[in-house]
């Protein structure tokens, strides 16, 4: 009897099948769409919340940063190195055979104004924060930055020269709002 009941539901052929199948199809499709729409908030809620996004840009006043001084600024929970480069540092950064670089990049491609170098202070090897922001810090052979974790050395343009890091220190998105303020992010 169970089987006859089952065939009763699925059995009858002919024009009835088309109408019935359409109903099942339409309902199934509507249900699937509803389930997908219902699932969306669960997934989307894991994206950065409004307060996290609000802190995704930071404005930095460059006026107090002396020539030769390097400051660290927090942006999106990460350290950003803001270096007011001396003429010598800029010259050393330009005076480079790009072929020799592991991650070839001209200095001019890394800065908007040559005296201001702005880059994310996270070593591209395994994520430590390189030393070199303070004058007393080791800066490596190229007088840029030196990562104490595994010995990566960056030049005055933040490019990788020696050690295991595969890439140059990242340049974040930034813009000059005035001659002495930037917005990062």
């Amino acid at each position: 009897m169970a089987s006859s009941a089952q065939s009763g539901a699925h059995g009858a052929q002919g024009a009835g099948v088309k109408r019935r199948d359409f109903l099942y199809l339409a309902t199934g499709a509507a249900g699937a769409i509803g389930a997908a729409i219902a699932a969306w908030p669960f997934i989307y809620s894991m994206n950065p919340a409004a307060d996290v996004l609000a802190l995704s840009t930071v404005e930095v006043d460059l006026a107090p940063v002396q020539t030769g001084q390097r400051i660290t600024v927090k942006w999106r929970s990460q350290p950003v190195f803001v270096a007011h480069r001396t003429e010598d540092e800029v010259k050393a950064a330009d005076d480079v055979n790009l072929e020799e670089l592991r991650d070839p990049q001209a200095d001019s491609a890394r800065v908007k104004k040559p005296e201001w170098l702005i880059m994310v202070g996270i070593c591209t090897h395994l994520g430590c924060v390189p030393l070199g922001q303070k004058p007393s810090d080791p800066r490596g052979e190229w007088k840029g930055w030196f990562c104490p974790c595994h010995g990566s050395q960056y030049d005055t343009s933040g490019r990788i020269r020696k050690g295991p890091a595969p890439a140059n220190l990242a340049i974040p998105q930034y813009a000059f709002l005035t001659d002495t303020t930037i917005r990062i992010g």
Binding site: P41, F42, Y44, S45, N47, A49, A50, D51, V52
Partner: peptide, 13 residues
């Protein structure tokens, strides 16, 4: 309150 105001669809969840 952060869930209600800042988290995407937090109020709904």
């Amino acid at each position: 309150e952060r869930i209600m105001r800042d988290v995407n669809y937090g109020w709904l969840l």
